[in-house]
Simulated scan of single mutants.
Amino acid sequence: MKAFITGISGFVGYYLANKLVSEGYDVLGISRAEPKRKATGVEYILCDINDRGKMEKIITDSRPDHVYHLAGPAFIPLSYEKPNIAYGTIVDGTLNLYEIIRKHRLSCKVLYVGSADVYGHGDGTPLHEGSPIVPMNPYAGAKACAEIISKQFYHTYGIQIVSARPFNHTGPYQSVDFVCSNFAKQIALMEKNGESTLSVGNIEVERDFLDVRDVVDAYYLLMQCGTPGEVYNVCSGTCTSLKNIISWLFMNSSIQQHQIFVAPEKLRKVDAPVRVGNHDALVRDTRWFPKYKIKDTMHELLQYWRDNLEKLEK
């Protein structure tokens, strides 16, 4: 079996590539930037998803059985400053991919990876796939548009597309643009430099966190068992406050006392107080269930940054 991953150089792409190799797939992936780390046994090609000619050649030459569509900017604050990039990559890139599949009548199955950000604030209760779509930022708007395109291409052209709405996920190798990794790196630096102040944004919020390895397991199972034309939340079904994330990180550190500083520049323009998902559909159709506890993931994430800081010094 052949698998094709768009956005393979991203945080999730690395873990997904490793997962697919372990399952016996021949894996090929594209990205605009050279990956910082590569999975063993995977073919990497530099390619912009909007480069129609190059994309067409790669896909028609490889003729994948499964396509995992991850490509697109993931850092929400950047989408406020450059909404054209969010829409151009996520919406136009998705349309470009599907048009190639349609034009060449490829029989591959596709997993479109959207975002739970499409739900907006919600009302604090577990969000299910039928909950209202209220995107509150350009990133979420672009993801919602691409999800609609996915459903339309399934109904109109019969392309076998399953859509995922992942909630927050984290783990080693995640960029410091994202909250858990940012906290972990800061605390690793605090240990190293004998400091005691952690700089944060709004830590009153509660989010539904998963370990990235549970997320890629869900993506793999959705490709095997997910119903084309349907959307699935990928989430734990439980809330974790950022205060708890910070507490778990400090529990695993050597720091005895610390202070919290709320940095105004880290406060988001729009920030839902609580966002938690319902994963009943995912569990029903795939028998997936999370294996990793976020408390343990925080221990691994902190250790990753300790090790990484040492490597950067060498």
Score class of each variant (00 low, 15 high):
R284Q: 08
K291S: 05
G237S: 10
Y139C: 08
E191H: 06
T297Y: 08
A17R: 03
A188C: 05
D217V: 03
D48K: 13
E147G: 07
H69D: 15
K192E: 06
D117I: 01
I101T: 00
Q256L: 01
V216F: 02
K243E: 12
I187A: 10
V231K: 06
L222P: 04
K36F: 07
G114I: 02
M251E: 08
G10S: 09
I203Y: 07
S107Y: 06
G29P: 13
S107Q: 14
Q152T: 11
I8G: 02
A142L: 06
H258D: 00
A33F: 12
P264C: 07
K243Q: 06
S241W: 08
E81Y: 05
S9W: 03
I294P: 02
E313A: 12
I294H: 06
T94S: 14
Y25F: 14
I76V: 13
D217S: 13
I76K: 08
K36Y: 06
L70G: 05
Y220H: 09
L309S: 03
W305A: 01
S196H: 15
W305R: 03
T60F: 04
E310Y: 00
I133E: 04
Q303G: 11
V134L: 13
G10L: 01
R275F: 02
R268T: 10
V162K: 02
K57H: 14
D117N: 14
W248P: 01
C145R: 05
F153W: 09
C180M: 13
L106V: 02
C47E: 08
L222N: 03
E191M: 04
Q174M: 11
D51K: 10
G130E: 09
E265T: 11
S79D: 12
L46N: 11
R102G: 04
I59R: 03
A188S: 13
G277Q: 02
L97K: 07
Y139I: 07
V12H: 00
E230S: 10
N244P: 00
S9K: 10
L106S: 00
E300Y: 14
E310M: 01
P172I: 05
Y68R: 05
I45N: 15
L267N: 12
I5F: 00
C47R: 07
C145Q: 14
H66W: 09
Y15P: 03
F153R: 00
V200L: 05
G10N: 06
S22C: 13
S247V: 04
T297M: 11
D92Y: 10
N202A: 10
P228G: 10
P73D: 11
V231P: 04
Y68L: 07
V91N: 07
Y44F: 15
W305M: 02
H258F: 10
Y292V: 12
P73E: 15
C235H: 10
K314T: 15
A142I: 08
K185L: 14
N252W: 02
A164D: 10
V200K: 09
P83I: 03
T238K: 14
D48F: 13
L46C: 06
G122M: 09
Y119R: 01
P228D: 08
E43G: 06
R63E: 09
T89L: 14
N308W: 12
Q256P: 00
F261N: 11
L106D: 00
Q259C: 00
I260Y: 07
S107N: 11
D92V: 08
T94E: 01
Y68N: 05
I148N: 14
A86V: 07
N233S: 10
G120Q: 07
L46E: 12
Q257P: 03
I161S: 02
P83C: 06
R32A: 15
P77L: 06
Y173A: 00
A140E: 14
M136G: 09
Q174T: 12
